[in-house]
């Protein structure tokens, strides 16, 4: 069960950030070749990311590359660079339907075979950025066994909906649709970026909302958002203590061959045990909430 609370965006053309970002310890690092890179630097960013991915430090953290859409001249060369460099996950932007993921999967497999990489070792994620994408979210989420998750991208989505970012009402349906699709497909769900770095209270309010909805985490645009996010996702001491007792009771029940056990009169079954394990995993990753 890979923890994916924080996915830090890095502009693919920025040598300094690519050389040092691992020190911030997000759960995943995403090298961006799309919106963060100007048209005249697409080639240099692609080659820089290809080389950076081969740094030994990036073997110890999950790496993601956001490629340009495959219907642009940049998409396929980006994909060649990412797959050949050994990236863990390719993020496809502007995914409107299952056929977008299926095309990506075919191209990834072709490149894996061409460069001798194990077929199936490149994982995928799809970003949903339009009304069509939201409507097709379930088909997208189930389009490939390589998918580790789907993400909602807020800016393009609200543009497509002819609205603008506000208090979150404008994203409510899309968030719920993407989240339900991800859960039905048993993959992860990632929320939109929070772009106002000076509004920490607004960021934390949004994190609280998406955590309660059930998102695994959020795409981030600045390293200083990582600790805030991890802390918000960290369980309280009481939650950790209870989760420990749940897991211990479940282990005892298993030892005795019992299907269902109880703790202080409350039934403990599979979903409760799974939740307790997730609580302990988050506590192990970043302690208890401060």
């Amino acid at each position: 069960m890979k923890l994916r609370r924080s996915m830090l965006f890095l502009p693919g053309a920025n040598a300094a950030m690519l050389s040092t970002a691992f020190v911030y310890k997000p759960d995943s690092i995403m090298f961006d070749l799309e919106d963060a890179v100007s048209l005249r630097e697409k080639d240099s960013a692609r080659i820089l990311v290809f080389n950076a991915l081969q740094l030994p430090v990036y073997r110890e953290i999950e790496t993601v590359v956001r490629i340009n859409p495959l219907n642009t001249p940049f998409g396929l060369p980006d994909l060649e660079a990412a797959v050949r460099a050994g990236v863990d996950v390719v993020r496809l932007p502007k995914t409107d339907g299952a056929e977008d993921v299926e095309l990506l999967e075919r191209e990834v497999e072709r490149i894996e075979r061409a460069c001798g990489r194990e077929v199936g070792s490149t994982r995928l994620m799809a970003a949903i950025e339009s009304a069509s994408g939201v409507i097709n979210a379930l088909a997208i989420a189930k389009a490939s066994p390589r998918l580790i998750g789907i993400a909602l991208a807020g800016f393009d989505y609200v543009m497509d909906m002819q609205t603008e970012r506000g208090d979150g009402t404008e994203l409510f349906y899309a968030r719920c649709a993407v989240l339900h699709a991800a859960r039905a497909a048993k993959i992860d769900a990632f929320d939109v970026v929070w772009s106002d770095l000076n509004d920490e209270a607004g960021f934390l309010k949004e994190v609280d909302l998406i955590k309660r909805l059930g998102f695994n985490g959020k795409s981030l645009i600045n390293p200083r958002q990582i600790e805030l996010l991890h802390n918000a996702y960290a369980p309280t001491e009481e939650e950790v203590e209870y989760a420990g007792r749940v897991v211990a009771a479940a282990a005892e029940g298993e030892r005795k061959g019992l299907g269902v056990v109880s703790l202080n009169g409350k039934m403990i079954d599979g979903p409760v045990i799974d939740h307790a394990r997730r609580v302990l995993q988050r506590a192990e990753a970043s302690g208890t909430r401060k």
Binding site: A15, S19, D43, S44, I47, L48, N51
Partner: peptide, 16 residues
Amino acid sequence: ALDCAIRARVQTAVMR
């Protein structure tokens, strides 16, 4: 720059 950035910039300049 780190070695990976040196390689990348040389490769890009040569290709251009």
